[in-house]
Design a protein around this nucleic acid. Structure first.
Lengths: 207, 207
DNA sequence: AGGCTAACGCAATCCGAGTTGCCTTAGCAA
DNA sequence: TTGCTAAGGCAACTCGGATTGCGTTAGCCT
């Protein structure tokens, strides 16, 4: 492979440096910020690299070199933003936990910028994204399982054959309403969803 | 405004003709078919009008004149395709009805072309689409309400404070799994969703 | 059948995204 | 500091999607 300028004896690693600090870091964050801005205003389909470049005060070339495809740029934006959005409430009762979760999910899916971002991601079919979302949901399922597990330990609900179903009942409806149905997502609506989830949790016949 | 060639006296509607049959109809359906094809292969973001034109054996100009924006073309495709997808099973029991519904929804959301089409629609934020989807879901909610109403009449379940919630419990989970979670949508999975919906329907305290 | 004109087709043109080669700037290590 | 070189900037170029003007075809009405 490599025809790097490496002396015959391997010992000294002749300048392997990758520059991640200083200018590079500034450019990176400027571009990501500008991208979020563009996404919010025009959406992913008409995302224009030249416009992003201008907004970030960066040369077009630079962006194309670091992110050969638009989807890669979007990927980096998403993973930095989404990372912070997985929370695990532990308020001492399953009802409170579910309500806290419902509120946070609804808040995220109602916020315009985030909504646009997620719309963009969902419209993609790349493999990288498939993997990224799969990993993300594994995490969330783990969180859900633990949350329900604690409720079972406390004796609030009987053991569940599929713990994540309890949480899914709540989140699925929120997603559907936020994205396609445009249904209600106010406090009483969320309350109703949590109630339903609890009914399922309490009355499901043991498998 | 208009400097149309209209004689002073308004009476006679001087040739208001809009030609919808013959050639126009042929072109229309050819373009729509070609669009579905393109959508399936490359997706909405990189949808190329020139390629559609070639595939449909139609001049590029024609497409741009009839559908000034890509989104309008997509809109027409979607509304012709989606129209046929609202079914109302009436099999004599709420369980069978829900299963039939679940199967059909899962089938639609699993079929690659349809999935791509819906992804495209969801990535848009146009007002026209907002209205289109709102209307569509009004229909579906009406169907759901009737279906649940019949079950109540048969005495299978008690009267519901919000009938469409019963159906939403099933469809929401299917949507979430198909679009974002990549969760299971096989027969037992659907069965589980229907069971949960029925638990809610039977045990929800009357409002 | 005849004529009016909506709708289509063709070709030239415009415009902006994406690409490439080369030069300049500025991290980083010695 | 000094020097090496990653990483960024600049400008010219390519390519294909979008637009426009004008001639041609073929619905539809009388």
């Amino acid at each position: 492979m490599g025809a790097m300028t490496a002396d015959s004896t391997d010992a000294r690693p002749t300048y392997q440096g990758v520059r991640t600090g200083g200018r590079s870091a500034r450019v990176r964050s400027a571009v990501l910020a500008a991208t979020v801005d563009e996404l919010r205003t025009v959406g992913y389909a008409d995302l224009s690299i030249p416009r992003i470049a201008k907004a970030a005060d960066v040369a077009v070339t630079t962006i194309y070199r670091r992110w050969p495809h638009k989807s890669q740029l979007l990927g980096e934006v998403v993973s930095t933003v989404v990372a912070a959005s997985v929370l695990e409430p532990d308020l001492g009762s399953i009802e409170d936990d579910l309500m806290a979760l419902a509120r946070s999910v609804a808040a995220v899916l109602t916020e315009p910028t985030m909504l646009m971002l997620l719309r963009s991601v969902l419209s993609l079919t790349n493999d990288e994204f498939h993997e990224l979302t799969t990993r993300h949901w594994h995490e969330r399922h783990a969180v859900a399982t633990r949350m329900v597990g604690r409720a079972v330990d406390r004796g609030e609900i009987p053991p569940q054959p599929d713990p994540k179903r309890v949480v899914e009942t709540v989140t699925a409806a929120i997603w559907l309403r936020a994205f396609v149905t445009h249904g209600a997502l106010d406090e009483p609506a969320l309350r109703g969803l949590v109630d339903d989830a609890l009914i399922i949790a309490r009355h499901r016949p043991a498998s």
